[in-house]
Design a protein around this nucleic acid. Sequence first.
DNA 1: AATGAATGAGTATTCATTCAT
DNA 2: GATGAATGAATACTCATTCAT
Lengths: 193, 193, 193, 193
Amino acid sequence: MARLIDEGKIQRIKLATIQLVVQNGYGGASISSIAKRAGVAEGYLYRFYSSKQELVTELLYSQVARIVGKLESLLNTCTSTREVMTQLIGELFRMGTETPEEIRFIYVLMHDYNFQVSDLQRQHIKGLIDKVISIGIANGELNSRISAEEAYGMVIIYPIEFINLRMKGFFGIKEWTTEEQNRVAEFSINALK
Amino acid sequence: MARLIDEGKIQRIKLATIQLVVQNGYGGASISSIAKRAGVAEGYLYRFYSSKQELVTELLYSQVARIVGKLESLLNTCTSTREVMTQLIGELFRMGTETPEEIRFIYVLMHDYNFQVSDLQRQHIKGLIDKVISIGIANGELNSRISAEEAYGMVIIYPIEFINLRMKGFFGIKEWTTEEQNRVAEFSINALK
Amino acid sequence: MARLIDEGKIQRIKLATIQLVVQNGYGGASISSIAKRAGVAEGYLYRFYSSKQELVTELLYSQVARIVGKLESLLNTCTSTREVMTQLIGELFRMGTETPEEIRFIYVLMHDYNFQVSDLQRQHIKGLIDKVISIGIANGELNSRISAEEAYGMVIIYPIEFINLRMKGFFGIKEWTTEEQNRVAEFSINALK
Amino acid sequence: MARLIDEGKIQRIKLATIQLVVQNGYGGASISSIAKRAGVAEGYLYRFYSSKQELVTELLYSQVARIVGKLESLLNTCTSTREVMTQLIGELFRMGTETPEEIRFIYVLMHDYNFQVSDLQRQHIKGLIDKVISIGIANGELNSRISAEEAYGMVIIYPIEFINLRMKGFFGIKEWTTEEQNRVAEFSINALK
DNA sequence: AATGAATGAGTATTCATTCAT
DNA sequence: GATGAATGAATACTCATTCAT
């Protein structure tokens, strides 16, 4: 009977990759350092990913999917844009607190032209953002002429940028309060009014 | 009596570097590819820059300085935050139209941990943002509790992100109208109200 | 389960390095030429040595250690300076016959400012030379005012220089007889009388 | 009327080359650093020397010639080997005191296989050494079976090695007294008795 | 199945040399 | 004559990938 694939190893590979990409950038995260940190052989990675690029792409995909999934579930339960955005931004800040490496990972790669989000994922995001907008318009919360791009920038990009600015300590401080978190949501909503 | 330094070559090196960093990221822009595209010998770069890192850092510095300089001059002539932001965002869009690679260059490197803006430049930016805020508060345009980080995110980061989202065609469209440009300014101002 | 490290390859790297340093000096012995001669990939060297400098240093260390070790063991068994020196010089000539590249390797690097013998090794040599001297004085073979430096020059340096002069054919001849070998010992002993 | 060649520049090139080769080795003495230190343009060197190799070779030649010339003149004035050797070693130590870089220069290059003394110079040296020997034998100072090589090693090589050992501080001390200098001569003479 | 030995194309950088001025 | 701008082959070193075990 064939041994089962050791999920622990795969998890360790994923974790090590995220940590090392965040710490040293894509170029600085070598397969050998990833394998060493994950406690697996270098060659082992290639059983699951055909290249370093694929490994990182897949991880980026699943990290983005996590946020997208959250937005999707919020759209099923919330009745106002304000609620959606407050919750979503809350989730982003929670990620920043609990698994800072994961949000940093997205942050580091989202401007790298080698790592575009897949077309499918983009379509999906577009659909969800459209939903956010139509709820907002229906509720009179949003300016009826808001575009998906504008909303996406405010609802997703701005919060991620803000959190990372803070985590980097660009203006000196590295922590945040619940109040500040709520202000970010407030800004986004105000912006799109 | 020796040849004069060919300024054209230096310009071509700068241009090639910006283009290739934009296309392939810092890691993907090799000295050999830069030299080839600039039509100079590989070693020639090192007459002006002591390393690849210095070359890119210097280019980033001057691109950032361009935007910072614009903000600075606006603060000397404008009397309201609205005016400052409208003009600044206008400038960013102008860059996006006229020299799209340059704004992309900033966009690509601003998330790269190898390329932090220098402390001096950061201090400078902080000072200017503080000025924007105090004008806004004095004029009753801005919420009096706005932090520098929040303002920076809205005034600088959001517009850059928006322009790049559009230039990438993330939501399908790659051009923009003056009207859309003004809306971005409007969002920023609304956000910080 | 992975391949075993091929010790032959390491041996070939060592041999190739010694040969090429002897032929072309440290600067002229490029990693690429070493790898080619050893029949291994360029990168392979770096699995065992972190730099070219380390590779050569380590080889020099072990070659010097061989001679130093011989001297040390002679000091444990011989009862006169004459015996020590005759035997040591015999050993140096044996090296010159059997593994001429190795003694040439020492010869080439001992004047290279990049390759000082380690402090530890120097201390060790100093101690041994002191012992040679004290045996010689006790036996009435050596002038009691001989310094370590003077002895070192005669006991180690002069023979190495002589052998290499001969191997180079500086004065036309490249071979030597046992008689000549004994004369070298005789000179050294006479010098220090 | 053609300008005369500026001898000062050539002298400065020679000096700079010797200093930089001694300090950094042949490889570390770049044409650009030599030119800079000499205060001439890089290209200027190539008017007199067709390559870096030739420049250094020529300097080595003339440094060796200086010592050989001294030996030659001593052979015309001295009547005993003892006198020749005492004076010659005196000269070597004088070089070590007055122009240490020059004797170091010889020391550094004399083991470098890229810089063999020319055949002509070797022949010349051979002739002189033969003369030293025949004077010594005639005077009853030297063992009649001494070879040129043996004498060369003792008369030239050993003193150069000794001085450099001392200048390097291999055994801790870097200075020398006249007495020590005379002992070196004594050793050489004793050795060849 | 899993390892890690081995590869070699690729990297940034240096520097002796050439030659337009 | 003299300069120093410009070259490009060569250097030490890295690392994603392959594959024998």
